[in-house]
Design a protein around this nucleic acid. Structure first.
Length: 730
DNA sequence: AGCACGCCGACT
DNA sequence: GTCGGCGTGCTC
């Protein structure tokens, strides 16, 4: 006896598919790519149908329901997800869950309408005692009521305080649909059509060639900052749309690159094109709306962050990955995929053109060009002919520091301010000071969950862990020696801001880091302040190096460049070089002749000297032999196995045992470790890692199945995470 | 992941 | 004697 059967990728961390009988009532409706509700053990879970076929299903259970009239995932997308599940060795159902807008794989089966609590001030005569309660309450009152999400954006973890305020009777709590506030209500910016220079024109022609042939081809668009990459993107997208096909643009983080979104809106909205954005700032409902609009074919341009690589565009013709070197394209937890790498795969499968753009291409992409699998397109000049800035490496071994600033940098800032030019200072460490120390007895303060010191935040009068967000009051007297000499050590952006205020009392100083850009629109406010020249000095973390273009910045200073070089990671030179080159490119964009000062104890290090001379090619030539010699990417391939658990010895023993088992079947694969992770203890868990290294991928892949087998015999309290092509080893 | 089953310590 | 700890196994 034969009946209709379905293979289901279920939302559970299991590697295999599960087969079910399709009841007659669903046979008409059910399609591959649709979600289903299925009995699973004693419970009922959501899954996606990935195969329908005839067979004998007498021993199988029946599907309970089909949740979608039209499939959520088309065949093309399922194929990509299948490939990704395979490559990243991650359960198919979990991969699908990552691709779909949030909530769609939850067992409750509800679709995208998300609700949250809304709060409103009532009973004005009741006044709470706590300072934090008062703060939050008066803020809510000022806003005329607020949603939980908005409050959370303003104050860290306010849930308990809110609960207390409701209990006291001065806040009213209600539940409502989460506010949808798409940026599409904002006015369309005006477009400026720019003429292309020769290099831009040539790059565009090669892209158009691939577009019209409708073949897969990947390009690395390597253009210095200000060389007009965006205009090339715009033209290529226009060509793609003209063919009746669609374009997908990936950016590291949308909230940091509103200028790119504006340019696209300015160019294409007047032509009647709808643009959708996909990013983490979207509420569940907004994301669901966008997703459905895209899959119905109503949207021809999608701009989004990492997960937008899974946007369900049915007629995809072009994928652009802007700032392709950016590490945020790699997801660091759970399903650890790399969106740029998947873009290349999706392009190949489609087939369609893929453009990777950067001023500082990743070694991986440069290497692909060298190997001939990617076409290099060079934009060597700045569009407005502004010369690249002169970079000076300030040797801290010979030059004195005043606070955190070298004398020569202070002089340069003074000059810039006198000439009414703006200054940008990069210090890649937020807070006031990286740790507090009792200078009487040497006690310092550590996070109870992580192996790291607590960062002192003066503004908030707290010590905070930058990894798990643990917070504590700063003690007045040392808990060990009862002394009163607890002093901040080292400097973060907060302290730099304060020092500058002392050195340049007349200057208007702003700070941009995670602490000052917590709330919606605050990042944009700081950017606007810079644009309007209401700010003389902008202090910030690497955030200031990304995306925006400040035309009146004449001087850039980099402090603490060495901390980037000293990370325990083979890619730290590449990352330093990219960051320094990016931030250096911020100087003198319209004026020409900007200056950059980089303070360092290693002025001879090639990632600094190459950044100083804007020598991307030179950096590549020096870094590659080192990677080749050690078999590191892009010359070899890595897999990181991360073991974690509450009991350090148990984690260590498990890792050791597994390493021994792997050793027996390693073949060509080098097995390094186990060793403690650079952050041995993180969020209360002890962590060890085993690094697998191999000149080719197939033996690595084979070894993963041995990992599965061996892992089944480890204690359950030890979790194993597999990171394919790890970007950083934290 | 859940949710069962199963086997050992402290309670009415 | 049982209530409940969490270690182990399975889900079509």
């Amino acid at each position: 006896m034969t009946s209709l059967l379905a293979d289901i990728a279920v939302n559970a961390p299991v590697r295999n598919l599960f087969s079910y009988r399709v009841p007659a009532a669903l046979a008409e409706k059910l399609r591959v790519g649709a979600r289903v509700q299925a009995p699973f053990g004693r419970r009922s879970i959501v899954g996606v149908a990935v195969r329908l076929y005839q067979g004998d299903g007498s021993e199988l259970k029946e599907l309970r329901d089909c949740l979608d009239e039209a499939p959520l995932l088309d065949d093309q997308l399922l194929r990509l997800l299948r490939w990704a599940a395979d490559y990243y060795h991650h359960p198919f159902g979990q991969v699908i869950k990552n691709a779909l807008p949030g909530g769609l794989m939850r067992s409750s089966g509800q679709t995208g309408i998300a609700t949250e609590y809304l709060y409103r001030r009532i009973n004005r005569d009741i006044c709470p005692a706590g300072r934090r309660q008062q703060q939050i309450l008066s803020w809510i009152e000022q806003q005329g009521g607020a949603a939980a999400g908005q409050i959370r954006a303003e104050f860290p973890s306010p849930t308990t305080v809110l609960k207390r305020l409701v209990e006291l009777g001065c806040l009213e709590q209600s539940e409502g649909e989460r506010l949808r506030d798409p940026f599409l209500l904002e006015p369309v910016p005006s477009d400026k059509q720019l003429t292309l220079n020769d290099a831009q024109q040539q790059a565009l022609e090669q892209m158009i060639d691939a577009l019209s042939a409708r073949r897969f081809q990947s390009f690395l668009l390597h253009g210095v900052t200000g060389s007009g990459k965006t205009e090339v993107y715009l033209r290529a997208v226009a060509d793609c749309l003209q063919q009746g096909r669609q374009a997908l643009i990936l950016v590291p983080e949308i909230s940091l690159t509103p200028q790119l979104v504006s340019r696209f809106r300015a160019r294409f909205e007047p032509l009647g094109e709808q643009i959708a954005t996909l990013h983490s700032g979207l509420s569940g409902g907004e994301r669901y709306d966008a997703w459905r609009a895209i899959s119905r074919g109503q949207v021809n341009i999608v701009i989004g962050a990492r997960s937008a690589i899974f946007a369900p565009l049915p007629q995809l013709g072009l994928i652009i990955v802007d700032e392709e070197h950016d590490g945020s394209y790699k997801q660091g937890e759970g399903f650890r995929y790399h969106a740029r790498d998947l873009a290349l795969v999706r392009g190949q499968q489609q087939p369609c053109a893929v453009v990777l753009g950067s001023a500082t291409p990743s070694l991986a992409s440069s290497y692909r060009c060298e190997q001939g699998s990617c076409t290099l397109l060079l934009l060597p000049e700045r569009v407005h002919a502004g010369a690249l800035p002169a970079v000076e490496l300030v040797d801290l071994r010979t030059e004195a520091l005043r606070g955190v600033l070298a004398e020569s940098l202070i002089t340069a800032i003074t000059t810039a301010l006198e000439q009414r030019q703006q200054v940008l200072l990069l210090l890649n460490r937020r807070g006031f000071a990286p740790f507090l120390l009792c200078t009487d007895c040497g006690t310092s303060f550590h996070c109870p969950n992580c192996e790291i010191t607590l960062t002192y935040h003066q503004r908030r009068r707290r010590m905070i862990c930058h990894y798990c967000d643990y917070q504590d009051q700063v003690p007045d007297i040392c808990p060990a020696c009862r002394g009163e000499s607890i002093t901040p050590q080292g400097a973060g952006t907060e302290r730099l801001e304060e020092d500058l205020a002392g050195l340049f009392p007349a200057a208007r100083i702003a700070r941009m880091d995670r602490d000052t850009t917590r709330t919606k629109g605050s990042h944009q406010r700081i950017v606007n302040g810079m644009m309007a020249e209401e700010v003389d000095i902008l202090v910030g973390t690497q955030m200031i190096a990304k995306g925006h273009d400040f035309p009146n910045v004449a001087l850039v200073g980099v402090l603490g460049a060495d901390s980037l070089l000293n990370l325990p990671d083979f890619r730290c030179a590449e990352r330093s070089f990219a960051l320094l080159t990016q931030v250096a490119g911020r100087a003198g964009r319209s004026l020409g002749g900007g200056k950059v000062f980089i303070q360092t104890y290693h002025p001879e290090h090639f990632s600094l000297t190459c950044a100083a001379t804007h020598d991307v090619e030179g950096f590549y030539q020096q870094e590659l032999p080192f990677r080749r010699e050690l078999g590191y990417p892009p010359c070899g391939h890595l897999v990181n196995l991360i073991f974690s658990g509450n009991n350090g010895d148990q984690v260590n023993n498990s890792a050791t045992q597994l390493a021994r088992r792997l050793q027996a079947v390693a073949g060509d694969v080098e097995i390094l470790g186990p060793s403690p992770c650079p952050l041995t203890r993180l969020r209360g868990k002890y962590r060890y890692q085993i690094l697998l290294k191999s000149p080719s991928r197939p033996p690595l892949r084979r070894l993963l199945f041995a990992v599965d087998n061996a892992a089944a015999e480890l204690p359950r309290q030890v979790a194993i995470h597999i990171d394919i092509d790890p970007l950083d080893m934290f």
